[in-house]
Nucleic acid binder design. Structure first.
Lengths: 189, 189
DNA sequence: GAGCGGATCGAGGGGATGCTTC
DNA sequence: ACGAAGCATCCCCTCGATCCGC
């Protein structure tokens, strides 16, 4: 647990978003920040009631969404994300762990913020990513965390190659890369 | 200034959203939550895309809004109980057991008291619900009780999916949900 | 905590299926 | 005897981290 200081009005706002008693600040913030971006469609069409407040908030969120994707468009759709990877150099690295780290480094280079949202990923016990080496260390016995080059992040490293691919594939997919691009990355591990 | 406690990974996530040095937690959260009110209205009408995320947050806000101003008039019965469930999040859970637990958690959130009355349910030998894990353990060989999140209750978990649906359907029905709502919940298991 | 990489095996959880009971 | 309802065995799959090879 970490402690942060926030201004009173913000505090009250967050408290007002409590959905059920016993909910922790973390729970509420996680919900509000919705740090995952995923599929979209599905039958959510049934929403009918619309209050003033919602209308506003909804607009805000739309703005958010649009911003986010327009970033995505300029940064990623126009520029081929694969350009961020020097595959021949990567393939020369002596181990899959090294290649894994380089590839993650490339993903971070594409967009640090999208990476931050995408690397929220854990196993049944271990934390996989963190900016804090010790946090990873604390979540498992011998996870062998290593720093991702040119980024503030660390990853777990003590996994078989298949799992390294899964991790990579998850992050890339969460960041919105195309299927064939993800495939290319996973092959390169 | 107020102090709140949050989980480490969330802390790191928030920190990672820093835009410029010297930015306070409040600044970052305000930006992420978009709560400074203000502008926004304007011709946003043309927005078409609606992500799950928004839809969900919108639903949560509906609950909030209605609760707040309905203190006077109706109460929970009139609000769509389905608003208590974040279906997209639930559907992402990896197992039907997880989904089952989330769904029960939602039912509890709707009304702890009605839940308490509704969860009086047992099999021929096993106790299904209890606030006491050991009581469940004692009533069967390997019932695998698990805690229902954000509630004081435990449920039996070692059942096939069909039975999970039956249990859910029974509780929801006992709590007075409508047929179509119950159906929606059972499908989500 | 310091050698590093990572395949291999073991632990643990999920839940369908088959057995038991009424 | 037959069927329905319910229990929990047992298989499968996921994930962790030990341990061997370099």
């Amino acid at each position: 647990m970490k402690t942060i200081e926030i201004e009173e009005d913000l505090y009250l706002y967050i408290a007002s978003q409590t959905k059920h008693i016993g909910e922790s600040a973390s729970d509420i913030l996680r919900r509000l920040l919705e740090v995952d971006g995923q599929e979209l469609q599905q039958a959510q069409a049934e929403n009918v009631v619309v209050s003033n407040e919602e209308a506003n908030v909804e607009q805000e969120l739309v703005v958010e969404a649009v911003n986010t994707d327009s970033l995505a468009q300029t940064d990623v759709a126009d520029i081929d994300p694969l350009n961020y990877f020097n595959f021949s150099e990567i393939s020369e690295a002596g181990s899959s762990t090294k290649r894994f780290l380089s590839l993650l480094s490339g993903l971070y280079a594409i967009d640090g913020e999208r990476f931050a949202k995408a690397c929220v990923l854990k196993g049944s016990k271990r934390e996989y990513f963190s900016q804090d080496k010790d946090l990873l260390l604390a979540s498992g016995k011998t996870s062998k965390p290593q720093a991702i080059p040119n980024s503030p992040y660390w990853v777990i490293t003590n996994t078989n190659t298949a799992r390294k691919r899964h991790i990579l594939q998850h992050v890339a997919s969460e960041m919105g890369l195309q299927e064939f691009q993800i495939e290319r990355l996973c092959e390169a591990v």
